[in-house]
């Protein structure tokens, strides 16, 4: 799917009860998660899985001064990857991982992760990431998942431009480029 055909919904972060309110009792009624919409319909993910993927990808690689995972099209790329590349075994494992991730995030957020505020979601994933990297052996699937999302991101045209390392244009070799030169 090309970037210009992709329907991109800009995030609408709903602020409720003050920006610092992170407890579950102050969550908004409805959270709109930025979504990389798949025009022809999902081929692998269920709707709930896709929402989780979108939310995670958006927080891991947010839209800042450079393109974020959603606008780069990471979730829809992942849907195609799982549909076209992954074997049944890989699909099963990935699906099981998403289920476990959902449970873990729900446990940390103390409610449905997809329904917590953006700030709460960010803190939840941050906490989970800390936990995972404290014991990486126990979270190898999570680390692999992050790696895959980052790889997909850097492989998309917008992501490649933002990260500057997946594409090797014709050029030359210089082993002494000043660090700050770009």
């Amino acid at each position: 799917m090309s970037i210009d055909r992709r329907k991109f919904l800009v995030a609408a972060i709903v602020a409720v009860g003050g920006a610092t309110a992170l407890s579950s009792c102050s969550e908004p009624e409805a959270i709109i998660i930025p979504t990389d919409d798949v025009e022809s319909g999902l081929r692998f993910y269920t709707e709930d899985e896709y929402k989780l993927l979108n939310r995670f990808a958006d927080i891991l690689i947010p839209e800042t001064s450079s393109v974020g995972a959603i606008r780069a099209g990471v979730p829809s790329y992942m849907d195609g990857l799982m549909a076209d590349w992954a074997s049944d075994a890989t699909r099963l494992r990935h699906r099981a991982f998403l289920s476990e991730l959902s449970n873990q995030l729900q446990g940390l957020a103390k409610r449905d992760f997809l329904k917590v505020s953006q700030e709460n979601a960010l803190q939840t994933i941050k906490d989970f990431d800390e936990l995972a990297f404290a014991e990486p052996k126990n979270f190898s699937d999570y680390i692999g998942f992050k790696d895959l999302l980052a790889t997909v991101y850097s492989t998309t045209e917008l992501g490649a431009e933002a990260t500057g390392w997946s594409y090797a244009p014709p050029g030359y070799w210089d082993p002494n480029v000043p660090k700050d030169y770009s």
Binding site: I59, L60, I61, P62, T64, S66, L122, I125, K126, D129, E130, A132, F133, I143, G144, K146, D147, A150, T151, Y153, S154, A162, T163, G164, W165, K179
Partner: peptide
């Protein structure tokens, strides 16, 4: 050494920074 992808922990801007071509 370039801290790319999942090599180190972090999310958001911190993670994006690590994915840049940063020596």
């Amino acid at each position: 050494v370039i801290d790319r992808r999942a090599a180190l922990k972090g999310i958001g801007q911190e993670f994006k920074d690590r994915n840049k071509d940063k020596p």
